[in-house]
Design a protein around this nucleic acid. Structure first.
Lengths: 192, 192
DNA sequence: TTTCTCATGTAACGCGTTACATGATTAC
DNA sequence: GTAATCATGTAACGCGTTACATGAGAAA
């Protein structure tokens, strides 16, 4: 449930509404959540119950009330406690690799098409990551170290997808070579 | 729900029971599922209902009956149909990166400890991956291409975790350098 | 006139997890 | 005697998703 802490983290920057949080998470290419209301509004209720955030209702005219949440000292403490917990290794789902496991039933052309499709999917994701890496979020007063950390996070994701591209391209070439070699061998056997 | 297809894939190698499948998935370092009964036995029921596998009950003495599932021609077709679906890009959860986002509240020592802990977690995972890459699964009659594909899948995971290690080690060094530089600057200011 | 933005929330459902339940045999 | 192996299955729960619900004002 690290989403709760991620929300708490954003609130540690400045007080915000669920709606604000939702937009941030929806736009963040490097956050693995889809920013659905159910999670966010529930999370805010939970954070409030735990005393980690305060809730202020701002009345508006011609628009719904804003429920503005701000982090409390207890919340900051809880955030730090979570930050220093021993980290888990990354957990990736790569359904493409599952597909590859049983891809030997494909002929050379079908296999090549499959790899090509993966290259495209990964390339697209990489494109959006790069676009976002260049954008500057409107976040206030960041220390050089924090700026550095956020850059490294972005670099991590980009490197991850670049590696994936490199890997699949290498595989594509090697499969091509294997296929050609086999063709030559078959031709030789036919002559004999 | 690619788990259903992964199970179908294993059954395409040889007929198996849920128990067999469970052991395979539990041992496979590169499969992202925990091999719980609930998923596996339900999946087998579903595959059977869809006519993708047949079910044969083998009575045993002194042990529970074995429900042996074998793939049907329709199952093989469904497997291939799934294999050629346009692949999704990988989806990774890296809670450590979420922690890093708010890690600027840590002092240099705490930060270094956190990075060290991540290095250990990733290193351990990498160790197990490497062990398994050396093991030869007792799977029958594999074409050179299928062998190659499985090796590439393993390499993908290993490269992924190696990259993660490299990334965090670089960050550790750079943070160390930044810290020293800041110390020197503070000392200079103190003299002035 | 339709769509977008602001803003909050709920309902239904799918996937995945741990833990529970049974019960004989074999190994330490 | 305790634990592991063989073998099947269920219950309860958590996290995450999409879709639904409301309702005003502003922009296209």
């Amino acid at each position: 449930m690290s989403i709760n802490y991620v929300i708490l983290g954003y609130l540690s920057w400045r007080p915000m509404t669920g709606y604000d949080i939702k937009k941030i998470i929806a736009d963040a290419e490097t956050l693995p959540w889809s920013a659905n209301n159910n999670q966010i509004y529930r999370a805010l209720i939970k954070l409030h119950q735990d005393g980690w955030v305060t809730k202020t209702i701002e009345n508006q005219v011609g628009a719904p009330d804003r429920h503005v949440y701000a982090v409390t000292p207890a919340g900051l403490e809880a955030l730090k406690d979570w930050v220093v917990t021993t980290p888990d290794p990354p957990q990736s789902k790569k359904p493409f690799l599952d597909q590859l496991m049983w891809a030997d039933c494909l002929d050379a052309a079908e296999m090549d098409q499959l790899l090509e499709a993966y290259i495209e999917a990964v390339g697209e994701k990489l494109f959006f990551l790069r676009v976002q890496a260049d954008e500057k979020p409107n976040m206030p007063e960041r220390t050089p170290r924090e700026t550095y950390l956020w850059e490294m996070i972005h670099k991590n994701w980009i490197a991850h997808f670049e590696l994936e591209l490199k890997w699949v391209r290498q595989m594509r070439e090697e499969l091509m070579t294997m296929e050609k070699q086999q063709q030559r061998e078959l031709a030789r056997q036919a002559r004999a």
